[in-house]
Amino acid sequence: MPSRTKVAVGGVIGALALVGAAAVATAALSVIVARKVIVPPSRREEDVAVRSVDLEAGLIVLDSTPDSRLRGEYSFWFARETGHARVGEIVSATATSVTRRIVGVDVGDLRTAKRGRLTGWFYLTPADLEVPYDHVEIATPLGDAPAWLVPASDGPSTHWAIHVHGRAVRRPETLRAVPIFREAGFTSLVVSYRNDGEAPRSDDFRYALGDREWLDVDAAMRYALSHGATELVLVGWSMGGATVLQALTRSTYSDKVVGVVLESPVVDWIAALDFQVKMRNLPVFVRSFVILLYKHPWGRLFTGLAEPLDIDRLDFVTRAKELDRPVLILHSDDDGFVPSTASRALALARPDIVTLEAFDTARHTKLWNYDRERWEGAIRRWIAKLPSAQRRTNSALRES
């Protein structure tokens, strides 16, 4: 073989080898990303360093991060989530540190904390709200799942709100919304769902991004209706937003839903995956491979999913025309995990039913913490416009 031909063949083989190596690397990255999204984490990253704690002065000094620089009150988890404190407003800040007030320490010795993470939870149980509540069990397809039942402020009510938390967290995340609904005459059902660490596990122990979790919300809807509810509002946080939208469009009880509230929601998983890929500076093809892994039966070999996910059904920007109930979306443009672009697109597609309360600086599921008055006001005004709220007002006027 002439030398030039050998060089050419060698070049082609080398190029194919490089292409093959790149394809393998992209596929490997895709598997890692796909699993990271759907595998429940054993523990969360402690991403904020603690510089000092002065319990007598009631001050904690943290490294400066996008979350630690936010105004407001937050949960601070430490000691691998065995410790919990509540931190308040910023006292002072430098380019590298933030000093905040300590509102209280619920569990653990904060003085020994070296690292931790800030979340928006703030309340750990309904007892922190200083309201009456009961522990109840919801009969889901996988078994009984614990829930909190918080009655309306004026007693038994036929109007119920079902609160659904997000990915990799638990029920307490949603407690911030309970007082507003309680004040408005709603009984609140704060639920758990499969694979969240409280409800029963699925056989594959994988999140389905709302594609199967909605069945547990459906069970909660059935529970509410069998215990006196005649009208429901579904309240979903983050992935809980995707879950309640599935319940709204797939449950046999959906005709009882009078409205939906979405906090930092995933309304389009493809947009969310795009954002995560770009944020990590990964090849653009990773997102496409991840979707293939979720959608096709052979993907289970790499993801561990028991059955494929219907990603297209989880896109409510494309499915906007199918929605027919009032929707309130609260989302911050600097979310950092779930982009607000899809929320904005849904609001643009359905201005007749979707109300968007857009923040610019509040991060993911921390809007209440950042500006409680604005957040609660938005929900209060939205509730007042519901047909059921107007009927209650008219009924009260007639009785008076």
Rank of each mutant, 00 (worst) to 15 (best):
S3L: 15
S3W: 15
G11K: 11
L16A: 13
A17F: 15
V19T: 14
V24P: 11
A28H: 11
L29W: 10
V31P: 02
A34G: 00
I38Q: 02
V39C: 07
P41Q: 04
P41A: 02
R44W: 12
R44S: 15
A49D: 05
V50R: 01
L55A: 12
A57F: 10
L59E: 10
L62T: 00
D63Q: 12
T65P: 00
S68L: 01
G72T: 04
F76R: 05
A79C: 13
R80T: 15
A85E: 07
G88C: 09
S92W: 11
T99D: 10
T99E: 08
R101Y: 08
R101A: 08
D106L: 15
D106V: 13
V107Q: 11
G116H: 01
R117Q: 06
T119Q: 09
T119H: 05
A127N: 10
D128I: 01
L129V: 00
L142N: 12
G143D: 13
G143C: 07
A145M: 05
A147R: 06
P151E: 10
V164I: 07
R171D: 01
P172W: 04
E173N: 05
E173Q: 12
P179N: 09
T187C: 07
G210C: 08
V217T: 05
M221D: 00
M221K: 02
M221H: 00
R222W: 08
R222T: 12
T230E: 15
V235E: 10
T249M: 12
R250S: 10
S254E: 12
S254P: 00
L262Y: 03
S264E: 04
P265V: 06
V266W: 04
V267P: 04
K278Y: 13
K278W: 15
M279C: 14
V284P: 14
R287E: 07
F289P: 05
L292P: 10
L293T: 00
G299H: 05
F302P: 10
I311M: 13
I311L: 14
R313S: 14
D315V: 05
V317A: 06
A320D: 00
L328R: 04
H331T: 07
D334H: 01
D335C: 01
P339M: 00
D352A: 11
F359Q: 06
H364K: 10
H364E: 03
N369M: 10
D371V: 06
W375E: 03
R380K: 09
I383R: 04
K385S: 14
S388T: 14
A389I: 06
R391I: 11
R391H: 12
E399A: 15
E399I: 14
